[in-house]
């Protein structure tokens, strides 16, 4: 079970949190102007990177706030957390084959 540092409540066990997938996917302002392919890409596709990944979590059994996590999806190392709307901090980007 991961230990996730909620930016508001501090480090808490993973079972207090919910997962929200890839971060910084902005909902298109005018979806009707998107092609079917572009829209499907927004709705269904995620990068799912092996390595450093920017993702969203919600502290559902805590402060109920959404926030961003930078996590190495291979090692589960949490490289940074930051609030919604914040610019992602610089981290050492881990990549794997």
């Amino acid at each position: 079970m991961l230990l996730i540092p909620c930016p508001y409540c501090g480090a808490r066990a993973e079972n207090e949190f919910g997962y929200g997938g890839e971060a910084h996917k902005v909902r298109p302002e005018t979806p009707e102007n998107l092609s079917d392919g572009q829209w499907a890409d927004y709705v269904f596709m995620q990068k799912n990177t092996k390595g450093t990944y920017h993702e969203r979590w919600v502290h559902s059994q805590g402060c109920r706030r959404w926030f961003n996590v930078i996590r190495d999806t291979l090692t589960n190392e949490i490289q940074a957390v930051y609030e919604m709307g914040e610019t992602p901090p610089e981290v050492d980007t881990k990549t794997y084959l």
């Binding site: 919910g18 929200g20 902005v26 909902r27 969203r56 919600v58 559902s60 109920r64 706030r65 959404w66 919604m84």
Partner: peptide
């Protein structure tokens, strides 16, 4: 509730 909060907080 989670769905609504997600839109309010993130979008």
């Amino acid at each position: 509730l989670a769905h609504l909060e997600e839109y309010l907080q993130t979008e």
